[in-house]
Design a binder for these strands. Structure first.
Lengths: 345, 345
DNA sequence: ATTAGCACTCAACGCGAGTGAGTGCTAATG
DNA sequence: CATTAGCACTCACTCGCGTTGAGTGCTAAT
């Protein structure tokens, strides 16, 4: 059981998995001997396959079909057998094409990155934009709109802009607003938005007495402006690519997957765990999620600029996924997006 | 052929269409007599059905199946037979539920409207947000970011906020910016964004000499800020609802539809024609589009606030759609969104 | 250890009979 | 003369059954 695989078994397992990734059909012993130049007869291969099945790397749908890899098989393949090739020059240049992102706002860039991931991998692309709450505060500005309404603008260290309309109740003069702005821009930079909120709450609660009027108003305004959570932005691209996969031919599995891909919330949960990791992460089948996306694997990578804004992107596809191609794509794209973020700020 | 339908034929046609909408299966003569209290025998109904088929309202998939409505049948049904009931109180209150939209920004509201449309109709909901270019300019503001970068903020009469980062090349002082802002906010309000652009181009070209330095810089800045088209925002909700429809059981039709629903561009084209119309519009089958969404019908309605911002929303579903339910839903939702827009500004 | 040979398994395919919902036509009916 | 009962006919759908063939596991020979 726990015995390590000898080289021949490894080669055969690799051949089976790669054939299956390619054809989506159970692989038989004869197919292996003809498609690969092992100097072995089908019978020998059969013996090896039987062993691999005993060890849990392969399974047979029924007696007279070939073998298909199990999740454990894929996991072993990805960890031990797969050598990750460098991304082909063709793809490299296709991804790193400046014209694609030229002159687009953050949202459009994120969407375009999703399209890119989906287009090149031919699976479904996911991008979770940097969460605003974890970005670093740089600047706040107030713009007076009509009838005592104020537009509040936050700018993060990474150049993200977030705005919100509030109705403070008091009609501030331009001078007052300027003082408030100056005060806040003096005190708050360098903290994450979450920290800023905590600080505001702290100041308002504990040290009320110590503050002068402008200071108090400043904190009250910014408190109001930061109320309410800013939802994560998730971008999905190429969901119809899922329908192309023979693995999801059944109506049922299709529905389950499309429903999940529609739910931003569920996607956030999927991507969230990879947020803090570094480098490419691979979730195969049940590793990815508790049956919400049965039969799917997920390849993710966090991206970040030099200034701390952090997001996650990835590709989701069937467990029978072309890992050797997708992994470098996700890796390279994440680093590209990191560079894009730096450019923006 | 052109002969008008007598009342009995109308009743039978209506019954057939409604049964088919309900069951998604060909309707036979016997089914009609048992499910509806016509005082007629199946044989008589058969005669009428044969006539209706001759006139092109019905079709038979094969000799020994019942009849299904043709597109022409649906069209006649919607135009002449369908009496639009008022929306049930249950739905009314479900749609007009303030807590649903409380404290959400425009984008989230639009998405939520899509969810609402999809949830209540159980088809797919579409919302095209007011095009920024056709909204009326109210206010422009500049915020200085680091390193000579400026954040430009447009506010429209309807309260929409749009921002963009530009790099003017010159480092303006706070005073200069204030003058520029004042000048622009004095000259531009009341025009649509498109008109503003034309005006800027005109001023820069024709009357260059007449302008003083500040004025010239003002126009140059705002020209830069308005460069590049702002893409339409389209929100889609409940695409998986399409998969639930037996009409799209075949892989092929499913793929075609999902692909179309993924393409913002194609959706914009679909919704665009309804933009300028007033009231609910109904596109049945091939009326909706040249085969891009074969087998689909589209119910749309434009919405607008009192201040001219105009968008379109709608529901897309199979031709075999519950028109009597969807039409009032779309109608009522459009008016609700109109009211929401007024509330925002 | 490897392989040839062979019996066995079982999904997939094709075929034909049976079933039943539905039709169109004709003749009878009020 | 519109309506209806009766009847032969059509045809998708289902089920059972034999055939096919890819693939396996086991055993004996190399």
């Amino acid at each position: 059981m726990g015995a390590p695989l000898n080289e021949r078994s490894q080669n055969i397992l690799e051949a089976i998995i790669e054939d299956y990734i390619h054809t989506a059909e159970p692989v038989g012993s004869r197919a292996i001997t003809t498609r690969h130049a092992f100097h072995l007869s089908p019978a020998t291969v059969r013996n090896v396959m039987a062993d691999l099945e005993d060890m849990g790397f392969l399974a047979s749908p029924h007696t007279s079909a070939g073998r298909i890899p199990t999740e454990k098989g894929y996991q072993y393949y990805v960890e031990s057998l797969l050598q990750i090739r460098d991304l082909s020059e063709e793809f490299r240049s296709c991804i790193d094409d400046d014209t694609r992102f030229a002159g687009k706002c953050m949202e459009d860039v994120m969407q375009e990155v999703g399209n890119l991931l989906s287009g090149i991998s031919s699976y479904t692309g996911l991008v979770m934009a940097p969460r605003f709450n974890s970005t670093i505060f740089r600047q706040i500005e107030f713009v007076r709109l009509s009838q005592g309404r104020l537009l509040v603008i936050f700018v993060s260290e990474s150049g993200l802009v977030q705005n919100k309309v509030i109705e403070p109740g008091i009609d501030f003069s331009a001078r007052e607003l300027e003082s408030i702005t100056n005060y806040l821009n003096h005190r708050l930079p360098g903290m994450t938005i979450t920290q800023v909120r905590e600080r505001i709450a702290f100041e308002l609660r504990e040290e009320k007495t110590r503050l002068n009027k402008i200071q108090k108003q400043a904190f009250e305004l910014s408190d109001k402006a930061l109320q309410g959570d800013i939802a994560e932005q998730v971008y999905v691209a190429g969901t119809s690519r899922m329908l192309e996969q023979p693995d999801f031919a059944s109506h049922d599995s299709m529905m389950r997957i499309m429903r999940t891909l529609e739910s931003k919330q569920q996607l956030i949960e999927l991507l969230d765990s990879s947020q803090s990791a570094s480098g490419v992460q691979i979730f195969i089948g049940s590793q990815a999620s508790d049956s919400k996306i049965e039969g799917c694997s997920l390849i993710t990578a966090p991206f970040s600029g030099q200034n701390g804004a952090v997001g996650t992107l990835g590709v989701i596809g069937p467990v029978r996924m072309n890992y050797s191609q997708v992994i470098p794509i996700v890796d390279f794209t994440a680093s590209l997006v990191g560079r894009l973020l730096d450019r923006e700020s």
